[in-house]
């Protein structure tokens, strides 16, 4: 357990210090959301209607773009081999790395979402709904993305391939995340149904993600 804790702290430190990508995700998030009104015009009513969808899409992309260095950097400097040889089960190691990644990339997105939501004319209730869905949904994105990051670990052009591989797999998370967020805005569905399914998807990916990613790492590095 202490080794896993040490790994968590190491990964978070690496992400926060110079050269790490912790705040890049939030910056990307902000830039994408800022670009949307330039593309569709400053119609506040329309922006409010598509606001949750835009924020969810931006969060999905921001989460994914930060993922490609997750295992690749460790692979290049050799620390991944040490992790593979360590006594802690690789699945847990991978899960801890995912957790560290979510804490430094996913969580800042969730915290920044209300501020950025203001740009899209989202009111208090919609903000709360959005933050709640992002809080529950972004771990699913991170842990599904882990699989892609592990598969693309030793590849050139891994980042682009990662996006191509992982994005179709995140369709369910996107559907239920946006549906739950829209429900607060007075959407067609009640909030409870999509939100519980979103929770279920997150829990499932918390299990499947580390196992598949660990299997991929074992296959790649040998």
């Amino acid at each position: 357990m202490t080794s896993l804790g040490a790994l968590l702290i190491r990964d978070m430190r690496l992400a926060v210090r110079v050269g790490g990508g912790a705040l890049m995700g939030v910056l990307f998030f902000l830039v994408v959301v800022t670009l949307v009104p330039f593309a569709i015009g400053p119609d506040l009513a329309l922006l409010e209607r598509i606001g949750p969808a835009v924020l969810w899409l931006a969060a999905l992309l921001a989460n994914l773009l930060a993922l490609d260095r997750l295992f690749a950097a460790d692979h290049e400097d050799g620390s991944l081999d040490l992790l593979l040889m360590s006594r802690a089960p690789l699945e847990l190691v991978v899960a801890v790395k995912g957790l560290a990644h979510w804490l430094t990339t996913g969580l800042p997105l969730v915290i920044a979402a209300p501020l950025i939501g203001l740009l899209l004319n989202l009111d208090g209730a919609a903000q709360a709904g959005l933050v709640l869905t992002l809080l529950v949904g972004t771990p699913a994105l991170t842990f599904i993305g882990l699989i892609g990051a592990a598969i693309a670990v030793a590849l050139r052009r891994g980042g682009l391939l990662l996006a191509v591989l992982v994005l179709p797999l995140t369709v369910p998370v996107l559907i239920f995340g946006v549906a739950a967020a829209n429900a607060v805005l007075g959407g067609a569905a009640p909030f409870g149904t999509p939100f519980t399914i979103l929770c279920a998807l997150s829990l499932a990916s918390l299990v499947i993600g580390p196992f598949a990613a660990a299997a991929a790492l074992r296959q790649e590095i040998e």
């Binding site: 699989i147 598969i151 591989l165 179709p168 797999l169 369709v171 369910p172 559907i175 239920f176 399914i197 998807l201 499947i208 598949a212 299997a215 991929a216 296959q219 790649e220």
Partner: peptide, 22 residues
């Protein structure tokens, strides 16, 4: 082959979920 195999199996698990959510 091994990388594609893992992606294929993950896809096989995810495809019914995608179908359901769509």
């Amino acid at each position: 082959a091994r990388a594609a195999a893992i992606l294929t199996l993950v896809g096989a698990v995810d495809l019914p979920i995608i179908k359901f959510s769509v």
